[in-house]
Design a protein around this nucleic acid. Structure first.
Length: 258
DNA sequence: AAAATTCACAACCGCACGGGT
DNA sequence: AACCCGTGCGGTTGTGAATTT
């Protein structure tokens, strides 16, 4: 909302959330964290926000031993955090070359574009945005999603929607092409369900207005243009595989259309 | 000014996967 | 084959800050 219009500080200072400690192995926590000389004394793993001291400990450990083996950290330096928590802290906050602060407009556009292409693959997206974490991207997207759903506006801007529609058409086309080696009943090519869908499919139009003319190819051309070997193949096989092949094509088309 | 709502974000959780034993 | 362990991923939650009503 207005957040993006307001100049953001270079590094946002956040304040503690969720401070809680959980006993290990179900033991109640009777010892102070990090304290005590007795190795057999019940210890607790800390949860919640990280302190500067904990960050420093983790930084030092990774500097010495490198990334990985996160579960060894607690044993080696007595940091009362589970391996998962250490890994997350390092990946999201401590590792070098992280970019702090709000996403730029360019980054936001990239996220939207990538999301249109690959969906909720946050980690994969993060590899395309150096210095950004999957968590940041996920948070950004979820906030954006809520906002747009509430406002009743489309998730993607028109140009992206157009690209999605085009890719879906291409995918449908490829799926149909994959059926090239499989025979279909050319005698019913203009009447079967698949061709009906093809003729009436244009995702950019309201359902009632979908017309064949906007689809990248016409079904009557399939046999000559896209299915050049159709007739000879058709003559070799029984009707049953034909209907199966068309059924699969139908399902695939329905899947990408709706 | 106060209350309600929304935003931003850190962190946790459960699950899946791969490698080792 | 079955189990364990470490790791990574995506979903979700909880909290303070910011904004709106």
């Amino acid at each position: 909302m207005v957040h993006k219009d307001v100049p953001q500080p270079e590094v946002k200072i956040k304040y503690p959330v969720r401070v809680k400690e959980e006993p290990i192995l179900g033991l109640s926590d009777s010892s102070s964290p990090g304290g005590g000389d007795d190795d057999d004394a019940p210890q607790s793993l800390k949860k919640g926000p990280w302190s500067a001291e904990e960050d420093a400990l983790l930084m030092e450990y990774v500097k010495k031993h490198g990334e990985g083996n996160w579960n060894a950290i607690q044993k080696n330096i007595g940091l009362q955090r589970c391996g998962k928590s250490c890994r997350l802290r390092w990946a999201n906050h401590l590792r070098p070359n992280l970019i702090k602060g709000s996403f730029t407009q360019e980054e936001e556009n990239l996220i939207i574009k990538y999301h249109a292409e690959i969906g909720n693959k946050w980690a994969q997206m993060a590899t395309y945005l150096p210095g950004r974490t999957d968590n940041e991207i996920k948070n950004f997207w979820n906030t954006r999603l809520k906002r747009r759903q509430r406002a009743g506006v489309p998730l993607y801007p028109p140009e992206i929607q157009a690209q999605i529609a085009m890719k879906k058409r291409q995918r449908a086309f490829m799926l149909m092409q994959n059926q090239v080696q499989r025979p279909i009943n050319i005698g019913n090519a203009g009447n079967d369900e698949t061709n009906y869908l093809l003729r009436n499919f244009d995702p950019s139009l309201p359902w009632q207005q979908r017309q064949a003319s906007t689809f990248p190819f016409k079904t009557e051309h399939l046999s000559t243009k896209w299915y050049p070997n159709y007739i000879s193949d058709h003559q070799k096989v029984s009707p049953q595989p034909m209907s199966l092949a068309m059924g699969q094509a139908n399902n695939a088309l329905i899947d990408v259309m709706f």
